[in-house]
Amino acid sequence: MRILVWHVHGSWTTSFVQGEHDYLVPLTPDRGEDGRGRARTYPWPESVVEVPHDRLRDEHVDVVVYQRPHELDLAREWLGRSVPGVYVEHNTPAGDVPKTRHPLADRDDIPLVHVTHFNDLFWDSGKAPTHVIEHGVLDPGHVYTGELARAGVVVNEPVRRWRVAGTDLLPAFATAAPLDVFGMKVAALDATLGLAGHLGTFEDLPQAQMHTALARRRVYLHPYRWTSLGLSLIEAMMIGMPVVALATTEAVEAVPPEAGVVSTKVPTLMKALERYAADPELAAQTGKAARAAALARYGLDRFLSDWERLLGEVASTAR
């Protein structure tokens, strides 16, 4: 199949394009949000091809994968014809959560795919039929060393996403174990939080380099209050890191008891950080269990198989 998909979520797309298809990613002159083209810091195969948005009318497309509401209009304009599609919802609902209506609520012409069961539960999709295809992650390998008695955190734009990402909780956690924060736009954290000596910041490392750096930290901290399910959490588990996470959204499903500590109690999480930082043997043992759990539930083969089945069904509607 030839699949049109926007480069919106780099980590998710990296897994998605590992299938046995041709993937067309729109390209605009400014490489803006609607036309980033191929990723520059993720390992994408040659089957992913940039196509200038004004040339998409000349391309054969079997299925469109939407990830934002306005992409439905873009596809209609850029393709100039109707093509079967699916809509992937990456995010938790915002606003008045129990009543938040999904943009595709009550539609039955475009399958709505949630990446977690939590999302499927909390979005009001009306009568629209929904599917859940859980994440699949490329295995970075069991590269954990844990040589540094520090906690690693991965978050993009932690200042803008303040309470959502749990950034406001970092000062408390930093008293239990020194923190190193990886991700985009993290350089301002030292000045914002005043954690000199406790916080090391690293600006937007390429994924492979980030995994290598993260693996040297003894424990992974996932302080998010409200996110679908951070792929960085799954990646940290696959690396072989023990996990300390807020018991919110899908984290309670993703992290079994043997893989780390999950709680809504910040003091409990602080004690867990302190314990893992002080006990490398316990951390390594827990990390092995975390890796096994992540591979079993979030392996790439299952993810691609689930998508193959659904995309085949959707594409067949046009035949």
Rank of each mutant, 00 (worst) to 15 (best):
residue 145 T to A: 11
residue 21 H to M: 00
residue 140 P to I: 04
residue 288 K to A: 10
residue 132 V to P: 13
residue 64 V to R: 06
residue 184 M to C: 05
residue 231 L to H: 08
residue 142 H to N: 03
residue 302 R to L: 12
residue 176 A to G: 12
residue 205 L to T: 07
residue 275 R to G: 13
residue 176 A to E: 02
residue 14 T to V: 11
residue 202 F to C: 07
residue 38 R to F: 00
residue 126 G to I: 00
residue 51 V to G: 05
residue 26 P to W: 14
residue 214 L to S: 01
residue 48 V to A: 04
residue 254 A to E: 12
residue 210 M to E: 10
residue 11 S to P: 15
residue 104 L to E: 09
residue 240 G to S: 10
residue 22 D to S: 01
residue 103 P to M: 00
residue 212 T to M: 11
residue 151 A to E: 11
residue 156 N to D: 15
residue 290 A to T: 13
residue 188 A to F: 10
residue 125 S to C: 10
residue 263 S to P: 04
residue 18 Q to N: 13
residue 24 L to D: 10
residue 108 D to M: 08
residue 45 P to A: 10
residue 237 M to C: 02
residue 7 H to V: 07
residue 217 R to A: 12
residue 144 Y to V: 04
residue 218 R to Q: 10
residue 5 V to A: 03
residue 44 W to F: 04
residue 120 D to C: 10
residue 94 A to Y: 14
residue 149 A to D: 14
residue 245 A to P: 00
residue 101 R to I: 03
residue 131 H to Y: 13
residue 314 V to Y: 04
residue 52 P to A: 03
residue 244 V to H: 01
residue 172 A to E: 12
residue 310 L to N: 09
residue 111 P to S: 11
residue 189 L to D: 02
residue 72 L to H: 03
residue 45 P to I: 01
residue 301 D to I: 04
residue 159 V to M: 05
residue 299 G to F: 04
residue 176 A to L: 02
residue 213 A to M: 09
residue 129 P to M: 03
